[in-house]
């Protein structure tokens, strides 16, 4: 599985990171280096091995579904790049 310029452009789009054309080949080379290294894992027989996602062995705790916090608009907006009237401001999305 080898990454080319087109794949880099696709990943960059998925990751929402602008990658200029002239950088794409260099990034493809770097990613291929890393990916060929991790391919070493294919040596390991993992048939019938369950994936390990949670090392604690505990199941995640449940709680009643009710509001525990809120009414803190000023806190929520304290660090926004741009806000107006208690809302986040973003570039126009709908024409």
């Amino acid at each position: 599985m080898s990454v080319d310029k087109t794949t880099v452009a696709k990943i960059a789009r998925l990751a929402r990171i602008h990658v200029p054309d002239e950088r794409q080949q260099a990034i493809a080379t770097e990613l291929n280096g890393i990916l060929s290294w991790v391919d070493e894992l294919n040596e390991v027989n993992t048939d019938n091995v369950e994936p390990l996602a949670n090392v604690t062995g505990h199941s995640l705790p449940m709680r009643d579904d009710f509001v525990t916090d809120g009414d803190r608009i000023d806190d929520v907006l304290a660090n926004v790049p741009e806000s107006a009237g208690g809302f986040f401001v973003v570039p126009k999305v709908v024409e």
Binding site: V38, P51, L52, V55
Partner: peptide, 13 residues
């Protein structure tokens, strides 16, 4: 990649 790595992670544990 991801599921494979999680399986190897179990073997390491």
């Amino acid at each position: 990649y991801y599921l494979k790595a999680q399986r190897v992670r179990r073997l390491i544990r």
